[in-house]
Amino acid sequence: MISCPIPKSEYENVLLAHGGGGKLTHQLIEKIFVSQFGNDLLNELNDSAVFEFHKNKLAFTTDSYVVQPIFFPGGNIGELAVNGTVNDIAVAGARPVYLSAGFIIEEGLPIDDLWNIVMSMKNAADKAGVKIVTGDTKVVEKGKADKLFINTSGVGVVYDNFNISSRNCKPGLSVILSGKIGDHGIAIMSARENLEFETEIVSDTAPLNGLVNALSKYSVNIKMLRDVTRGGLASVLNEIAASSGYGIEIEEEKIPINEQVRGACEILGLDPLYVANEGKLVAFVDDEKSEEILSVMKSLEVSKDAEIIGKVVDEHPQRVVMRTSIGSKRIVDMISGEQLPRIC
């Protein structure tokens, strides 16, 4: 029997922080899952596995949704489950076609809640132009699941000439962020922490496949796409920098953020760079085409607040550095576990 590669002296139990999207998550994935399941496709650790299948290039992905609370400002767990998987396919440069949906339901969940969630999923699927073609349902005893867990898997067809890979991220590329960061994480916190908002901050959950479709004519110029989810913008950029081998430089002033989200982050002592999103992506594009691609993005509702926020550089390889609003530069590191509110 192979012994567990995460030494017992470190963690006896899985911690919440292992799900935060930061270093601990990566450790868990590498040491437990990849070490056992590892193969060429899996080892790429992309959001979707892309492969040739009878002359078509397909993208295939899966994701599980365990968010609490299951209803939050701007959406619910069902919408996240559809949009999240649609987006993982989209950022592989693919057109999402079919989804599966598996439900693990805690005994006692009101049928009305389930109905509302499923209706939202239907609406989200229609909006994204995908079909949910297969599924599964399990019910477990009270206390064995937190109201509802959903798993969705998805398959899509890659657009011509998209060759998305962090190995293509080299100097000469601009980084475009598709809109304002932090909305989803703060919306979730507001439901948990009893924060009130004058204008309610709502989750930004949205399908991005329409955006990717609009960008598909620039596929030759787009080297990398990734959706920005848990762990925030900083985590995604760090992952890409680490696997590309190059550095990424961003400008604090250019990063779009809603004033109220900024205010909420100040109160809780959170850094917006690490707050979760659900309807945003980063695109690494050829410099010469960046302004043109930016205007295409700005013309769509889902990316109307897009900005060019930085570029790939030779310096500080594998690290992300930010020019702060006061003119100094600092390293933006990967976060260890979950970012927690602080008083100090």
């Binding site: 924060l195 009130e196 908002f197 004058e198 204008t199 901050i201 004033e259 109220q260 900024r262 205010g263 909420a264 100040e266 109160i267």
Partner: peptide, 9 residues
């Protein structure tokens, strides 16, 4: 109290 539009008691 309002902090950039976020209110709290």
């Amino acid at each position: 109290v309002s902090f950039s539009g976020v209110t709290k008691e």
